[in-house]
C-alpha cells in the first residue's frame, strides 16, 4: 500500500514531517486536583491527577519519595466498533507502566515522601498515537495539579513507511506494520525519558526517525507552553543534599508559568524505560 504518494502527501493530506492538529485543555475534571484533555488529530485523551495525598495502602508507602501510580484505560466507545474490553489486559498494563515510569522521571518525587500521586488516563477516541497523547495529557494534568516537575515531558511518535520517516502516525499508518518509535523527552533539559520501538530498523534510519520524533516532541512542548490557562505553583524544594536551593526561572510564559532548570539534575541519566516488548535499542 502507498502511504506516501509520489507527490509527497500522506493518506490524510499531511506531508511526512507534519503533525496532526493538536489541542490541549486544562481543568476538564472539576473534582480532580488536576486534569486535562489532549487531542492529537482524532486521538482524544482525558487525564486526571489526584494527589499528592495520603498513601491508601500503607504497605506501599515509601519513606523517601512519593508513590506514583498510573491507570490507563480505553473507553469502550473509543474505537470504531464498540466493545467491552477487560480491564488490566496486557496492553493497558504495559501502557500504564510506561506512563508511570515516564512521569516518575519528571516528578520531583523526593519532595513528597510518604505520599501518593494517582494519574488516571482514559482514551476517549483512538486514532493512533494513544501512548503519546496519554503522556502529553498526563503532563498537562500534573502541571494543573501543581505537582513539582523537572520539566514538562512531551511525547510523540514517528514511523518509517515506504522508505519515508513519518511523524505522528495515525491509526491507518500505525496498523501498516512498520516500525513505530515513541519518544518522550524533557524538552528543556534535552533528556530522553521514554524510547520505545517494537520492530527492527537499521541504526542510521532509526536515528533519523528518532530525531524526527524528538522534533515532534519539541513542537508539542512549545504548544503546551502556549496553553495559557494553567498555572504551575513554584515549589520551594530541597535538593538531595538537603539544602534549599534557589531555582532559576528560565522562562516565564504569558500566563505565569515557570519552568525550572535544575543544574544538579544534569548529571542524572534519565530513566530510560524499556518494557519487555520494546526492542533493546542501545541508548546513544
Amino acid at each position: 500500500m502507498e502511504y506516501v504518494s509520489p507527490e509527497g502527501l500522506r493518506l490524510d493530506g499531511r506531508r511526512p514531517m507534519e503533525m496532526r492538529q493538536i489541542r490541549g485543555e486544562l481543568g476538564a475534571v472539576a473534582k480532580a486536583d488536576g486534569s486535562a484533555v489532549f487531542e492529537m488529530g482524532n486521538t482524544k485523551v482525558i487525564a486526571a491527577v489526584y494527589g499528592p495525598r495520603e498513601v491508601q495502602n500503607r504497605s506501599q508507602q515509601l519513606n523517601d519519595q512519593a508513590l506514583v501510580r498510573c491507570e490507563y484505560s480505553m473507553a469502550n466507545f473509543s474505537t470504531g466498533d464498540r466493545m467491552r474490553k477487560p480491564k488490566g489486559d496486557r496492553r493497558s498494563t504495559e501502557i500504564s507502566l510506561v506512563i508511570r515510569q515516564t512521569m516518575e522521571a519528571c516528578i520531583l518525587t523526593h519532595l513528597m515522601p510518604r505520599s501518593q500521586i494517582d494519574i488516571f488516563v482514559q482514551v476517549l477516541q483512538a486514532d493512533g498515537g494513544t501512548r503519546s497523547a496519554c503522556i502529553n495529557a498526563a503532563t498537562l494534568a500534573l502541571a494543573d495539579a501543581g505537582i513539582p516537575m523537572r520539566d514538562l515531558v512531551t511525547s510523540c511518535s514517528a514511523g518509517y513507511l515506504n522508505s519515508n520517516p513519518l511523524l505522528d502516525l495515525n491509526y491507518v499508518e500505525d496498523s501498516a506494520g512498520g516500525p513505530d518509535v515513541t519518544v518522550g523527552i524533557l524538552a528543556k533539559l534535552d533528556r530522553v525519558t521514554l524510547l520505545q520501538m517494537d520492530a527492527k530498523l537499521p541504526m542510521d534510519i532509526f536515528e533519523n526517525v528518532m530525531q524526527l520524533a524528538i522534533e515532534g516532541c519539541k513542537a508539542i512542548a512549545n504548544y503546551i507552553r502556549e496553553v495559557r490557562t494553567f498555572q504551575l505553583v513554584l515549589p520551594v524544594v530541597e535538593d538531595h543534599l538537603g539544602t534549599i536551593r534557589e531555582y532559576q526561572a528560565t522562562g516565564v510564559s504569558p500566563g505565569h508559568i515557570v519552568f525550572l532548570s535544575l543544574p544538579f539534575l544534569k548529571g542524572i541519566p534519565s530513566q530510560l524505560t524499556l518494557p519487555n516488548s520494546a526492542a533493546q535499542v542501545p541508548f546513544w
Binding site: L11, D12, G13, R14, R20, Q21, G41, N42, G80, D81, D127, N170, V172
Partner: peptide, 26 residues
C-alpha cells in the same frame, strides 16, 4: 484546514463499521 471524512465499510467478517478519518486541506 481540517475536514473529516467518514464512510461506512464492510469488514471481512461482514460487519459494517463506520470509519472516520481526518482529511487535511492545504
Amino acid at each position: 484546514m481540517l475536514q473529516s471524512k467518514s464512510f461506512a465499510r464492510k469488514t471481512k467478517q461482514g460487519k459494517v463499521v463506520k470509519v472516520v478519518r481526518e482529511h487535511y486541506l492545504r
